[in-house]
Amino acid sequence: MLDSIIAWFADFGDSFYDNFIKDYRWKYLTDGLTNTLLITLGALILGIVLGFLIAVIRTTHDKTGRLKFVNAIAKLYLTIVRGTPVVVQLMIIYFVIFAAVDINIVLVAVISFGLNSAAYVAEIFRSGIMSIDPGQMEAGRSLGLNYTQTTWKIIMPQAVKNVLPALGNEMITLLKETSVAGYIGLQDLTKGGDIIRSRTYEAFLPLIAVAIIYLVMVLVLQAGVSRLERRLRQSDRD
């Protein structure tokens, strides 16, 4: 019994050495992780900025009837992005749109995932804005604030607070979705683990290591979002 346990640990040690230590293989994971984090962060910023903009356009159109043309473009954009798989979008952007352009591959991924995430973020923000009681807009307007002032001072703070859980969810989805970046030959975390697998012909350790790293990142994100939520909930206590 004891022997077999010792043997298992010895095997595990060998395996661990082969997969991570030998030939600096752990670098595939750390370099991949760096790329994954870069892509996620960049795409997140692009997605939130663009998504917010689209949400403002869509709701302004729905509430006031203005911005007809831009709204039509925004709707078309949402339909295309949400109607096609992100991997296909990524490949089209890399192999078709930027085919003849010499551009950093991480930047291509940031653009692809950012444009994709924007569509989902837009709908999240839009639902948040639409969920605010119309009485809030009326109260602001009847005090003499204009549409923009009321939107920024009264509607948005409440809307953003309401959509924070959904936004956190989108962040987590985005982080995990970047794992398809390998399709354009980008060495992200997933690809890093896969390269180790192809060197050592062992699947278990590299893939489990990759999974654990994703999980830890998601847990950290979740903790951050719930802290922010708690701070913003201040005014609801009664």
Partner: peptide
Amino acid sequence: MVFQHFNLFPH
């Protein structure tokens, strides 16, 4: 203007 449902700003 004063509304039936007050419409105070909760935040």
